[in-house]
């Protein structure tokens, strides 16, 4: 991003944090797509989603924060957050707590205890997902005017990065023995960019980074691209690899 897009270190680190993390909504959409294609996905994928959510954010923010501390001696005292405060911020973000909480509750409940509540979640889920996607569509649409501000290069990166990451993800998924559905979902996760967990963490840690860049790229470019083009593309690739 620094070389291709000529972004400053801070903006590049902020973008890396978003693309290093994953989008749970894109993950759910990929699962639904696989189901519609008549395939199955390995049951441990939600655990993988939880595991993949934060390391990318941590690494990118760590790099950015170190560069920032080196370059900017005039950081105000309130912004000089200790490392533990930054980790606390990322690890206690709402989305991570919900994902981890869901896993722990699932583990404690077991499959048998899920049966009584299954109709509530499985019947209403698709309807709720449709409403949520419509809402996200409106939010993404409201940022479309920002596309003019970020320029063609960032828009291109918002499309090329998911293709590159997604292809790698599908290859690695296939190589590690995942099913066609699993490799597609892993590829989709690698291709997706976070736009709920990463933005507040980046805002706290790298306040000089311009949110217009990272939010527009992740939400207005990459998110719709993955839903419309990415997921079917990764599915085709996974099918081709599986022979």
């Amino acid at each position: 991003m620094r070389k291709l897009g000529r972004f400053g270190q801070i903006d590049a680190a902020a973008l890396a944090a978003h693309y290093g993390s994953v989008s749970a909504v894109t993950f759910i959409a990929a699962n639904q797509f696989i189901e519609q294609m008549g395939k199955t996905v390995e049951g441990f994928m939600p655990t993988l989603l939880t595991l993949l959510e934060s390391p990318g954010i941590h690494i990118a923010l760590g790099i950015g924060a170190l560069k920032r501390a080196k370059n900017n001696s005039s950081i105000s005292s309130g912004e000089k957050k200790t490392k533990s405060a930054i980790f606390h911020e990322i690890l206690t973000g709402r989305s991570l707590i919900l994902l981890l909480g869901g896993l722990v509750i699932g583990l404690l409940m077991g499959a048998k205890a899920y049966e009584p509540v299954k109709p509530f979640f499985e019947t209403g889920f698709k309807g709720a997902l449709v409403l949520f996607l419509l809402e996200m569509g409106i939010v993404a649409g409201s940022r479309l005017s920002d596309l003019k501000k970020v320029g063609l290069l960032l828009i291109s990166l918002g499309i090329l990065i998911p293709i590159l990451h997604g292809t790698l993800g599908v290859f690695l998924g296939d190589w590690s023995g995942l099913s066609v559905g699993g490799a597609t979902v892993l590829g989709t996760m690698a291709a997706s960019a976070s736009y709920i967990a990463a933005p507040p963490a980046v805002r706290m840690t790298l306040p000089e980074a311009n949110p217009t860049y990272y939010l527009t790229a992740s939400l207005a470019v990459t998110f719709p691209f993955n839903l419309v083009v990415g997921i079917p593309l990764f599915f085709k690739l996974a099918e081709w690899l599986a022979g």
Binding site: R203, T212, L215
Partner: peptide, 8 residues
């Protein structure tokens, strides 16, 4: 000149 970086 910067959005707050929050959604919404």
């Amino acid at each position: 000149d910067k959005s707050s970086g929050e959604i919404p």
